[in-house]
Amino acid sequence: MNKLHSMSLLDNADFLKSVLDACSDGILISDDKGNVLYVNAAYESTTGLTREQMVGHNLKKLRDEEKLFNFAVSLLVLEQKKPASIIHEYITGKKALTTGNPIYREGGQGIVGVVCNTRDISSLINLRNELEITRKLLEKYSDELQQLRQQNMQQYEDFVYKSKAVADMLELASKAAQFDSSVLIQGESGVGKELLAKFIHQQSPRAEGPYIRVNCAAIPKELFESELFGYEQGSFTGASQKGKPGMFELANEGTILLDEVGELPLTVQSKLLRVLQEKEVFRLGAQKPTKLNVRVIAATNKDLALEVKKGNFREDLYFRLNVVPIIIPPLR
């Protein structure tokens, strides 16, 4: 019974018309003379052409005289007697792929009409265009990245090296340069800690600001505070009557390198910690602090973690300095 019912539905012209009307693709059916017999709602929506304009009219007349479109796949199918496809942009602005197939008489003798399937592919074309734009952007960014890498290689010309470890270290230093975080450079004497510190400064946004190097191992213990933090006039015997800015003030808006930071006395370490925390400095004899905007780089040939365990270096200061640790490999 169900099978018989299904067969009767297929023989029902109204049912078949309802099927075509329900299709999401546009459907146009014409006879062997190019006269339009049927279009569905999806065809109207995609092409912008109505049933009233199309049904009962000849495609050649609609194309050549009324200029409703400039190409008709159905006519091409009738002419070539085989399936044909085109991509066409309609007055709606939509781009569609239309495929026409011949309808043969029973037994395959001669064509009695053409059925055209029109599918809106605007979104696919837009996606293809977006992908093409993305591809071009990727090529552009790839070229720019290559240029930046070449520039970085030029920036590394002051360094003579062959090992990947040094190359990785320089890349880390280049990245660290872009931020204001404190950097702790560790390495044996003579491996280029000061050179690396200057490189970080030159690659940073502070490159136009001052770069001040303080050799902590060369300053007498009794002069540490006055050299680093400065002093006011008459603050101690022998002090300049004009006062003196310390190294931190001289480095304001730039970078200060605390070379051999492991040599700092514990008393100075506590005051240095305050400078890093509060971003201000008290000159000796001053009643109010001086605000600072300084990037701090520290360098040492000592194992500061070990010095912390020995009690020679403050743990809190170590963590303040060791935000970005960079270890320079030994030269040997």
Rank of each mutant, 00 (worst) to 15 (best):
K3H: 09
M7N: 13
L10R: 15
D14M: 12
L16C: 14
V19G: 07
K33V: 06
Y43H: 15
E44S: 10
T50Q: 05
M54V: 02
L62N: 04
D64T: 10
E65V: 11
F69A: 03
L78N: 00
E79W: 02
P83I: 00
A84R: 09
S85H: 01
I86C: 07
I91A: 01
K94L: 03
K95M: 02
L97C: 01
L97N: 01
T99I: 05
N101P: 00
I103T: 02
I103L: 15
R105N: 15
G108I: 14
Q109W: 10
T118S: 08
T118V: 13
R119T: 12
I125F: 14
I125E: 15
L131Y: 13
S142Q: 15
L145S: 08
R149V: 07
R149Y: 13
R149P: 06
N152I: 06
N152V: 04
N152G: 12
D158A: 13
F159Q: 08
V160D: 04
K164F: 13
M169E: 03
L172S: 13
K175F: 10
Q178N: 08
F179C: 06
V183M: 12
E188S: 11
G190A: 10
K198V: 02
I200N: 07
Q203A: 12
Q203P: 02
Y211I: 03
I212P: 00
A218H: 03
E225M: 08
S235F: 10
G238R: 02
Q241N: 14
Q241Y: 01
L250Y: 02
A251L: 00
A251T: 00
N252P: 01
E253I: 00
G254D: 01
I256Q: 04
D259M: 02
E260G: 03
V261P: 00
V268S: 09
L272V: 07
L273C: 09
E278M: 09
V281N: 03
R283V: 04
V294H: 04
I297Y: 05
A299M: 07
L304T: 07
A305Q: 15
V308G: 09
G311V: 10
E315R: 12
Y318L: 05
N322Q: 10
P325E: 10
P325K: 13
I326V: 12
I327D: 09
L331P: 08
